[in-house]
């Protein structure tokens, strides 16, 4: 295995909804060209943690976050941090496919146009490239002007991923990206993630332990706002250190 540089370092992350502490001091690092899976039962805080990394929690009222978050050595919560440019670097795919009610082309071109790119040739080229990367090109290439919402859920989700890839983020956060999809669509997305992982740092929250074991290099198990165990996926699944981890993996609670 090659040694990978650490892209994201988080230390002692605590998050409060009002007075209630939802994350109790989480330390996690993420490496480039790796897929890290965050697993754990519903409400354990894995999605909440994920949203800290592109500051989507800023949109929620009355949330306080402490601890340190460094991406490429820069504290992303420092006062002079531009949230907009952070989110260009750290993209997110949501649980429900959420394409805009525009054509496929306009969806994928959106991020580029937002960045001020006007050259139609460059946009077309990137749209095609991104849709190919997201493994949805063959299914939509004849219908690029069709409304993105007229496609199936799995196709919509890959269009959303293409929309994200078009802006060339460094980090991709996926918040249960396949939980609303059928197994075939999920498999396509997993395969695609494995193909693109070399160029990105990918963090995926998932409820499916099979998914985590299939695609991730590292796995973090969270429970009730605590990080219980973090390590190589193989080790976590075959030989977990903590009892809670093995109980969860064996389906003793969920």
């Amino acid at each position: 295995m090659t040694t990978n540089e650490t892209v994201i370092t988080t230390k002692d992350v605590r998050l409060y909804y009002g007075e209630h502490e939802a994350l109790h001091g989480i330390n996690l690092d993420f490496q480039k060209s790796q897929i890290t899976a965050l697993i754990g039962p519903s409400g354990c805080g894995k999605s909440t943690y994920l949203r800290c990394l592109n500051r989507m929690n800023d949109l929620i009222h009355d949330v306080t976050i402490t601890g340190s978050f460094k991406i490429d050595g820069h504290d992303i919560y420092r006062p002079q941090q531009d949230v907009v440019s952070l989110r260009k670097k750290v993209g997110m795919v949501f649980q429900q496919p959420n394409p805009f009610p525009f054509s496929v082309y306009d969806n994928v071109a959106y991020g580029l146009r937002v960045q001020g790119i006007k050259d139609k040739k460059i946009i077309s080229q990137k749209v095609e490239e991104s849709l190919k990367q997201a493994a949805v090109w063959d299914e939509v290439k004849d219908d690029l002007t069709k409304n993105a919402l007229s496609f199936s859920g799995g196709q919509q989700q890959r269009i959303c991923i293409a929309r994200l890839l078009a802006v060339k983020p460094d980090v991709i956060l996926l918040d249960e990206p396949t939980s609303a999809l059928d197994p075939i669509s999920s498999a396509k997305i997993e395969e695609m993630l494995l193909q693109i992982k070399d160029q990105y740092t990918i963090i995926i929250v998932t409820h499916s332990m099979q998914q985590a074991s299939r695609i991730s290099d590292k796995t973090a198990f969270m429970l009730n706002g605590d990080l219980v165990e973090y390590g190589d996926t193989k080790k976590i699944f075959l030989n977990p250190e903590q009892e809670a981890t093995s109980d969860y993996l064996n389906g003793k609670f969920g």
Partner: peptide
């Protein structure tokens, strides 16, 4: 207008005005 359009747009690095 569903809230997820707003989120999707912001998560792509669009400003509020965009």
């Amino acid at each position: 207008v569903p809230d997820h359009y707003r989120k999707a747009s912001l998560a792509l690095g669009a400003t509020k005005w965009q």
